[in-house]
Simulated assay, not measured.
Amino acid sequence: MHDPDRQAETSAGTTTGAALSVDAEKAAWRTSLLTARGLLSAEDRAAAARSIRDALLSRPEVEMAASVAAYASLLNEPDTRGLLFALWKRGTYVLLPRLLPDRDLDWATYEGPDSLVPGPHGLLQPTAEARGVRAVEAADVVIVPSLAVDRSGMRLGRGGGSYDRALARVGPQILTVGLVYDAELVDALPAAPHDRRLSAVVTPSGGFRRLP
């Protein structure tokens, strides 16, 4: 006998189980990736930062961008300090995120290295006046922190959901770029329905690469 209530319960249980499985896979990926990053030498990180900076700065889309939304790198992430400074000296209007209590991202102007102060969770944040969560919509290029990116453009972040919310506000014609080390461009990553794809990735050895 068909029992619609039982079927609904089973369907909900399957959906919940799938979500838990994706979360568990992501957690395992994060642990592995963060461990590998911790093993990189200071020399390797510095060389990677220079290569990524140069690859991005030479891209026509970045050269012509009036406004770039980026981020101040954290811990063992590919270092963005040189990139931010170069964009700023070039005259590009650079926006950096400020983490809100609900983990959404507000945005403010980067005005040089001395304009950054410690924020929540060890993040460096700009001291300029906040522009609001929708300020990212006006950026010509959005540079996104990533633990890994796969060849379809799927990105793995740290799990807070901040950038998925921010990227949901960005139009499909805007270049969104993940910065990762060579081994962090992978074939496939676990993904949930709310996860947002990137349109490009930059690695130290491979440089800039458009993604489908």
Rank of each mutant, 00 (worst) to 15 (best):
E111T: 10
E184Q: 15
T16A: 14
D102V: 06
A135L: 07
A166I: 09
A188P: 05
A42N: 10
S41W: 03
L179N: 12
R165E: 00
P101G: 01
A70F: 02
D23G: 07
A36G: 06
S115Y: 05
A72F: 04
L147D: 09
T31E: 13
G38M: 06
L156M: 10
Y71V: 08
P172L: 07
A200G: 05
V177C: 03
R53K: 15
L95H: 02
L56N: 02
T16L: 13
A24S: 13
S73A: 11
Y71H: 10
V170I: 12
A192L: 11
A47K: 14
N76P: 07
T14W: 13
K26L: 01
L105G: 01
S162H: 11
Q173A: 07
D150K: 12
K89T: 13
S32V: 13
T16E: 12
R53E: 14
G119D: 04
T203W: 03
G132H: 14
G159W: 12
P78T: 11
G153Q: 08
A8T: 12
L167G: 02
A86R: 15
G178Y: 05
R155Y: 11
A166P: 11
G119N: 04
S146H: 12
A192P: 09
S73P: 09
L99C: 00
A148S: 03
R210M: 03
D44N: 09
R197K: 15
A55K: 11
S21E: 15
D187Q: 11
G206T: 12
L198Q: 09
S146W: 10
P172I: 08
S58A: 09
G17T: 13
L74I: 11
S73C: 08
R210F: 06
R131M: 15
G82W: 05
R196I: 05
E184I: 07
L20H: 09
P97E: 05
A19Q: 15
P118Y: 02
P118F: 01
E9Y: 13
L100T: 08
V149W: 05
F85Y: 11
A138P: 02
D182R: 07
L84I: 13
A19C: 02
A8E: 12
A65D: 01
A49L: 03
R81Y: 06
P60Q: 13
V180R: 10
A19L: 11
Y110D: 01
A86P: 06
D140K: 06
A18Q: 14
A70M: 00
S162V: 11
K26W: 03
R30M: 06
L99N: 00
R197F: 01
D5T: 13
A86S: 14
R196Y: 05
L123G: 00
L99S: 04
P101S: 02
S152V: 10
S21P: 04
G178I: 06
